[in-house]
Design a protein around this nucleic acid. Structure first.
Lengths: 260, 260
DNA sequence: CCAAAATTCAAACGAACGTTCGAATTTTGA
DNA sequence: TCAAAATTCGAACGTTCGTTTGAATTTTGG
C-alpha cells in the first residue's frame, strides 16, 4: 500500500486527545501522539512562521521527531500535507459561517439596521470559536490562515481561491444587499480591503493582546467573543458604511496635495 | 575589485532612460539597457509575483538575459539585490511622507476637523505619485511593496521593521494626536489593520481598476490622485474614527452569537 | 594605442531541496 | 501464534539552490 488516503479520512484533531487515547497500540516509543499528529502540529507551526516555500520537509520531520519519509508516506506530498492542514480546519469553519448566514437570511435574529455588523459577526464568530478551541487548532490556526492568504505560492492561492470561491460570493452578495447605496466598485474594493486585513490582523500580536485583555476582564467563554467583536466590528462596519466622495474631505486632501 | 558598492551608489531608475542614454559605451549587444538595470527590472517583477524565497537567481538572470554570476558581481547577493530594489524606491517615498507630515504639523494647510484624512493623504499621495511615474517603478512597485510587507522571510521583515520603524512611530503619534478619544490599544490595532490592508489593497487588481476608472473620467495627473483618495480615504478614516462599544451594535452581534 | 580596470562568461562548488526505494520493524487480525 | 499488513527507517535519488572561481572579453583612461 502506498499511503492512506488522508484527504478523505475523518477529521481528527492534530494534538493528542480523547480520540487517540483509546488506541493503546499506537506509537508508545517517544511519546503518546501518533506520527500523523506530530507531523501536522509541527507543520502547522512551521508553515505559519516561515510560509510554504521556506518550510522544508526536513524541518517538519525534524521538529516532529519522525523519519523524513513519514510525510510522503502519510500524506503523499508536501502540498497534500499543507492542503490537509488548511482544509481540515477551514472547511468546518466555512460551513459554520454559511450556516449563520443562512439563519440570518432566513430572518432569525435579524436586526435590519445592523445587518452589516451581523454579517461581520457571522464571519468572525466561527473563527473566534475555533481560536478558543485548542483541540481544533487554537490561535495558531488563525496565524496559519493569515499566512496562507498572503502566501504567494501558486498552489496555495489556487487552493484558497477555488475551494472557497462560492462562500466568498455568497457573503459578497449579502453585503451588497445590506449596503444598497454603495457602488459595486467601492464595495468590491472595501471587501477586499477588510478581508485581507482580517486575516492579517487576527494573526497579529496586537489582536492577540486585545483578546487577552478582554478575556481578563470578562467571565470567559463565548460572551468574550461578543465583547471582542463589539470592539472590533464597529471599525469594520464604519469603513463599509462610509459615504463616498464627501466634499469637505476632498478639500482637506487637496490641501495636502498642494504641499507636494 | 569584487563588485561596486551598489547600496551607496546614487539612486538610478531601473528602466533605461535619459540617465543611461548619455553613455554610449555601455552594453550595445542585445539591447540598450545595462546589465544592472535589466537585473533590477526582472527581479522586481519576479519578486512581486512569487515572493522572495520562490524567486531564484537563475529565474532572475534568465529573465534579464544576463549571466548567472551577474547578480553576485553587481549586487553581492540575492539579499542585497532585494534590499536595493526596496530601498531605492521606498526611502525617497518615506522621506516625502515625512516631509508632508512635517508641513502638516507646522500648520501648513492644516484642516483640523479632517486631520485624519490629511494624515492618510500624507501617507498615500507619495505612494500614488510613485505609482504614476513609470521611471520610478510605476504600479509594479506598489505590488512589490505589498508582497514585501507580507513576506515571511526573516530577512525581509527585519529590513522593513528596522529601516522604517522611526517613520511608522511618527505617523502613529500623529494619528494618536488626531484621535484623542481612541484608546491606545484600539488605535494600535486599527493602525496595524489599516497599514496591512493598504499594502495588499493597493497591490490588488480591484484598486488598479478603480484608479483606471477614475483616470478615465478625470483630466489626468495629480488631481486624479485627489479623486482617488477622496474615494479611498473616507472608509479608512471612518474606520479609525468609529466609536468603540456601541450598545446597539453589541446587541445585534449577540443575536448572531445566539444562533450558534 | 595599450596597459589596467571593469565586466561577462562557462563551469563548477557544496548544500539543501522533495521524493523514492527496499529492507527492517512493528502492529494487526484470524 | 503467525502470516499479512502497516509503518518506520536509513540511504540514496536527481534536481535546484546561492555562490564562487578563473579565464575570456570589453571598456576605460592616459
Amino acid at each position: 500500500m502506498r499511503y492512506p488516503n488522508t484527504l478523505l479520512s475523518p477529521l481528527t484533531p492534530f494534538t493528542p486527545s480523547l480520540a487517540a487515547a483509546g488506541r493503546a497500540h499506537a506509537r508508545s516509543r517517544s511519546d503518546r501522539s501518533t506520527t500523523r499528529q506530530r507531523i501536522l502540529a509541527a507543520a502547522e507551526h512551521l508553515f505559519l512562521t516561515h510560509g510554504y516555500e521556506a518550510t522544508s520537509m526536513r524541518a517538519i520531520t525534524t521538529t516532529a521527531n519522525v523519519n523524513l519519509a513519514a510525510v510522503n508516506y502519510h500524506f503523499g506530498s508536501k502540498e497534500e500535507l499543507f492542503a490537509q492542514i488548511l482544509t481540515t480546519r477551514l472547511d468546518p469553519m466555512m460551513r459554520e459561517r454559511l450556516r449563520l448566514l443562512d439563519a440570518l437570511e432566513a430572518g432569525k435574529g435579524m436586526d435590519r439596521p445592523h445587518a452589516v455588523e451581523q454579517l461581520i459577526a457571522a464571519m468572525f464568530l466561527p473563527a473566534l470559536a475555533l481560536a478558543r478551541d485548542a483541540e481544533r487548532g487554537g490561535e495558531n490556526f488563525l496565524k496559519f490562515l493569515g499566512r496562507a492568504f498572503a502566501d504567494p505560492s501558486p498552489f496555495v492561492q489556487r487552493l484558497l481561491a477555488e475551494r472557497y470561491a462560492d462562500a466568498h460570493q455568497r457573503f459578497k452578495r449579502a453585503f451588497a444587499a445590506a449596503l444598497p447605496a454603495l457602488p459595486a466598485q467601492d464595495l468590491s474594493m472595501r471587501l477586499h480591503f477588510i478581508l485581507d486585513a482580517i486575516s492579517s490582523t487576527l494573526a497579529s500580536e496586537d489582536a492577540r493582546r486585545l483578546i487577552a485583555a478582554i478575556d481578563a476582564g470578562g467571565e470567559g467563554g463565548a460572551s468574550d467573543d461578543v465583547s471582542f467583536l463589539a470592539r472590533f466590528a464597529p471599525f469594520l462596519s464604519a469603513s463599509l458604511r462610509a459615504q463616498v466622495n464627501q466634499p469637505a474631505q476632498r478639500a482637506a486632501i487637496a490641501a495636502v496635495q498642494a504641499l507636494q
